[in-house]
């Protein structure tokens, strides 16, 4: 049975434990700016909303990728970025209409939620149950496109992106 992240903003207190856990497990640092799940803060209403990739059926990011660097994990259903194949062209970042693929200056590639291989740390870290990892009802299963179910392609020779001075909002310079 495939599982998915269930996000319930009404339970979120804005404690950012999920962001800390995500950045630490995936990037090796406690730095919310590097988290793949993001808690949005609606100051004026005192509300919070955790938000990340829904592993959507349409997989806009995956289809837009010119080099097959985003693939479906057959076990989890997650759309995963293959670091060794991604060239950092950023087309997936504009193709995902939910804004949940981000370009990372550090790696010169993109990062997105991969469900931590089936054991998402954000869900484990959330103290209030605003993020839970739950079974998908079986009607959701037929959605995966047959042609996307190929194995992980082997990388050709891939070198690190060139170092450069990048200017953007948000990320540390």
């Amino acid at each position: 049975m495939l599982r998915a992240l269930q996000l319930e903003p009404e339970k979120c207190t804005g404690c950012l434990q999920c962001e800390m856990a995500c950045s630490f497990e995936n990037e090796g640092v406690f730095n919310p700016a590097k988290s793949r799940i993001k808690v949005f803060n609606f100051h004026d209403q005192g509300r919070f909303a955790p938000y990340t990739c829904t592993q959507c059926d349409e997989a806009w990011c995956m289809h837009a990728c010119p080099v097959e660097a985003i693939v479906v994990n057959q076990d989890t259903g997650a759309k995963e970025v293959l670091d060794s194949v991604c060239v950092g062209c950023k087309v997936c970042t504009i193709a995902c209409p939910f804004g949940t693929v981000n370009y990372s200056h550090d790696s010169g590639k993109v990062i997105k939620c991969d469900l931590c291989g089936g054991d998402p740390w954000c869900a484990k870290a959330c103290p209030t149950g605003a993020i839970t990892y739950v079974d998908i009802d079986s009607t959701g299963l037929g959605r995966m496109r047959a042609w996307a179910q190929q194995g992980v392609p082997s990388a050709a020779s891939f070198n690190a992106p060139m170092e450069k001075d990048v200017q953007t909002y948000g990320q540390a310079q």
Partner: peptide, 13 residues
């Protein structure tokens, strides 16, 4: 030279 020619192929397999 971030990728070789094979890296440009639409399907790697």
């Amino acid at each position: 030279n971030q990728i070789d020619e094979r890296g440009t192929h639409l399907r790697k397999d």
